[in-house]
Structure formats: C-alpha cells, structure tokens
Amino acid sequence: MEECKMRLEDKLYLNGYKIDEIGGSHLHIKDPDVCKTCELKQCLYICACKVYELDENTDKIVINYDACVECGTCRIACDNIDWKYPRGGFGIAYKFG
C-alpha cells in the first residue's frame, strides 16, 4: 500500500502561498547551540509540513519557511524557536479552508 501514499511535496504544491522574498523567514532558531545538544529534536518530526530539516554537513537545523502554514505547533513544542506571523498578507492563503 506504501506506494499509494501522496508525497508531502505534492500536497504542499497544491496550496497557495505568497512568499515574503524581501522580509525573508518569519521563523528563526534563537540559539543554534541549543539544537546541537537537543536530544529529541522534535522540530524535525512534529511539523506536518516538514519545515525543519537537519543539514547533515553542517549539523544545523535548516528552516524551509516557504512551506509553513503558520499553525504554531513548533512554537509550542520547542521554546528555542522565535516564532512570528509572516508580514500581513504573506504566507498561506487557503482556497477552501
């Protein structure tokens, strides 16, 4: 059955985003050193949109803010994330909701 699963990338592609190219990411890691000693690294799996990824080369967390739907899960699950709303009008705009 595995092969019938829809890929997350394909799902996110369906959504309407307006990316803030000028303002950049609305999400930031407060202190990257904290991540290095974080054992759970829950940011890597709790996010339904896989916004957080580990860069194997640098061992740093990379933030794909353009996939974020602004739900707030990571904000509650980790206090090392500086979480803001995107600037007004940017980010996700659902068609159905």
Binding site: M1, C4, K5, M6, L8, K11, L12, L14, N15, A48, C49, V69, C71, T73, Y94, K95, F96, G97
Partner: peptide, 28 residues
C-alpha cells in the same frame, strides 16, 4: 500528516475516497 496518510489507507476509509483528487492540504 503521517496520521492522515495512514488513515487514508484504512480499509473502512479508503473506498470512500477512492479515485478522489486532493485539492488542498491544510494544517491547524
């Protein structure tokens, strides 16, 4: 999303959505 994908495969649920086209993916 993991939960959603496994739920879509459940034998009680899969026939209800068979042949459907996903139009939007939402999280809240």
């Amino acid at each position: 999303n993991d939960l959603l994908e496994s739920m879509k495969q459940h034998p009680s649920i899969a026939p209800l959505i068979a042949g459907g086209q996903t139009k939007e993916f939402l999280v809240h």
